[in-house]
Design a binder for these strands. Sequence first.
RNA 1: GGCGACGUGGCCAAGUGGUAAGGCAGGAGUCUGCAAAACUCUCAUCAUGGGUUCAAUUCCCAUCGUCGCCUCCA
Length: 466
Amino acid sequence: MSLKIYNTLSRSKVDFEPIEPGKVRFYVCGPTVYAEAHIGHAMSALVFDIVRRYLMYSGYDVDFVMNFTDVDDKIIAKANELGEDPYELAEHYINEYKRNLEELNILPATKNPRATEDMPQIISMIETLIAKGSAYAVNGDVYYRVESKDDYGKLSGRKLASMSAGARIQVDERKDHPMDFALWKSAKPGEPAWESPWGQGRPGWHIECSAMNMTHLGEQIDIHGGGNDLIFPHHENEIAQTEAVTGKEFSRVWMHNGMLSLKAEKMSKSLGNMISVDQFLADHPADVMRLWVLNGSYRGPLIYSQEVIEQTEQAYQRLLGAKKAALPGAKGLEAAALEALNAEADKVKADFKEKMDDDFNTSGALAALYELVKAINQARAEGAKDEQLASAQAVFTELTGVLGLRLEEQKTAGGDADAFIDLLVRLRRDLRAEKNWALSDKLRDGLKDLGVILEDSKDGTTWSWE
RNA sequence: GGCGACGUGGCCAAGUGGUAAGGCAGGAGUCUGCAAAACUCUCAUCAUGGGUUCAAUUCCCAUCGUCGCCUCCA
């Protein structure tokens, strides 16, 4: 079975065939860096990290480019407000963003181009557009001529006629068409500016992605991704610009993730209910955020609420449980039962791939993994030894790894505490042998307060960090 | 007004033209000194109204509702 991906351009699932066999040119629109990352950014980044990891697992060599928009009106405004240098402000948030990505176990991009570092390519692309009649300069500004491309609007399904009719923005008389958008903006005094054939200025938002795409991945790419709020105008305009320059199809597949929504109300700056990645990670393991994203479809909305996160925490504990060792005093599994366990692992693996091949159905893939969790738990309960669980657990670790889940047992800073805890557990064993329940319970409760969970069975006690 | 998405059990959420995965929570058991974990069993007819069909939750139409975009946004 081959990989199918939902393509926004065709509004259907298509068989994925990269331009060059075995290689994937993948571009994702990164953030404009003027504030700390919130969990909506994280959702998008996680979605495309999962896509990328699965492509890699499927044997593709993935060239993954994610840009940073580091010159922009909002950055300038924020810098002025704080009395800081715009470039340094951008630099600061880029580093913060990268730190968040790392904490979320998101693989670093192959390249992280920045608008300010690709200025010559941006300018040359605008020059080409002017030369081809797709753009025009007016008093130091340059606009893209939307009417020059007859399929303008093909990604978002919009028609120029209806758009101009409903245009709400004050019409700039210097534009040929109200929907014409800026490729180059002339600089006001004091703003960051670059020298260009049209005078001092800076690039428009859309052109930088087109230019960085072309510079770092080439004229045609396989997958272009981003949030579905970027479909129009950003991606629509990227297509227009790039295809006007190259005369070729820009990206084979356009992928868009759904938006995060808070249960009761939208997360927005005006409501002041933004949740930053740092805030989330202060309270929950990174795996919980990833699992929360994996639970649903990347294309649909993702609901955030306290209840949902608590449910995800519980589900996370269940996944962790699959990696637990054999029970103390395990007698060993019969050959038939062991065979059944390993057969189940194989089945789950096939199932997992089938689901992921169907437009990254992570929810279905997760369901397969829970089947494996159950099989492993059953085997353990029936007395499987560590070495008998190993093979199925290896499959489990492999597949959860493909999804980018770490599922690491909580560890102490050093391992020094272990010996002391072991000592207490042995001590408690003696207390229990004497049926001194009061003291042994006190010991268990005390350890719980310190984050150590004791679990008794008739053949002994195991412990783990909470 | 235009474009688009969605409405599945208490919550989150897959999926299919032939009566609905999984997780969380709940109920009943097993195990246990108790607890925890685990295991077993249990818990929906898919917004509403029409239509197409031998058969629809799945296709079509309408209605109601929710949401996104159309201005910066992952």
